[in-house]
């Protein structure tokens, strides 16, 4: 494999990974601040469940239809979680976690009579970042660009219902690009890495997330390992290194 070809293979994965990392880093800080780290798993699982349920009625839906169903489910979940936040603020995380388990189990039950819908949900949840094509990236780019722009230009989006809606739509898209493990890792680990910083954390979190994604894709291509698990690993290492560096600086 020549260098040019290597770049060609890695480039779409790198683009998808960086795109996801850019928006996840600031969102992850907000998620961590609110103490609702399982919300991404819950939203992704609910979207996946709805795709399966619709498959029961109509096998092999088109791309647009699948996206429409997933997005509607994500919006419904967002509205529900916002309501939970206001109504049961102290039990919010417990309810979100339970929703994740419930949606996952319902998907398994649907899967029991309906195995090929299971392939669909497994695909949505696992994501194969190396197989992502430029066309797929371009189709999700407007959503990511809008969310990223709004996040920094319209601070109101970080609160209340707008936060839940933006978050749900972004996560539903990024799960399909990079899979649920990388979604969780790229949200929470950069946020953890910079959590001890007193002032503004977004820049540092983006640096951590994007840097780890870059290193992860390079490492995956150089060692020929599946990219998803490698990304989770490099994100974890980056978070530990960041956190340790910050702590050492503080002591001095």
């Amino acid at each position: 494999m020549g260098f040019g070809e290597t770049v060609e293979i890695a480039a779409p994965a790198l683009a998808a990974g960086i795109m996801v990392a850019l928006i996840h880093a600031p969102m992850g800080i907000e998620v961590l601040r609110r103490g609702i780290v399982f919300i991404d798993l819950a939203v992704a699982q609910i979207a996946g469940l709805c795709v399966v349920l619709v498959n029961l009625w109509q096998p092999e839906p088109g791309w647009l239809q699948t996206q429409g169903i997933a997005a509607s489910a994500a919006i419904a979940a967002a509205i529900f979680f916002r309501w939970v936040e206001r109504k049961f603020p102290r039990e919010q995380e417990a309810i979100i976690g339970s929703c994740f388990i419930l949606a996952a189990s319902l998907a398994l039950l649907a899967l029991a009579g309906h195995p090929q819908g299971g392939e669909e949900i497994q695909h949505i949840l696992s994501g194969q970042i190396l197989f992502v094509s430029w066309a797929t990236i371009l189709s999700f780019l407007p959503l990511f660009a809008t969310a990223f722009g709004l996040w920094f230009m319209v601070p109101g989006i970080r609160t209340g219902l707008p936060f839940f809606l933006t978050f749900a739509l972004v996560v539903t898209a990024s799960v399909q690009l990079v899979g649920v493990y990388v979604v969780f890792a790229s949200l929470i680990l950069p946020a953890l890495a910079v959590n001890a910083i007193a002032g503004r954390k977004e820049g540092a979190a983006i640096l951590c997330g994007a840097g780890a994604t870059f290193a992860g894709i390079v490492f995956s291509v150089a060692t020929d390992q599946p990219a998803g698990p490698v990304l989770v690993f490099t994100l974890a290492v980056a978070a530990i290194v960041f956190r340790a560096t910050l702590a050492i600086r503080k002591i001095r």
Partner: peptide, 12 residues
Amino acid sequence: IRAKPSLIAKIR
């Protein structure tokens, strides 16, 4: 199977 970089290189 999982997508590995070498598989994409091979198929090309």
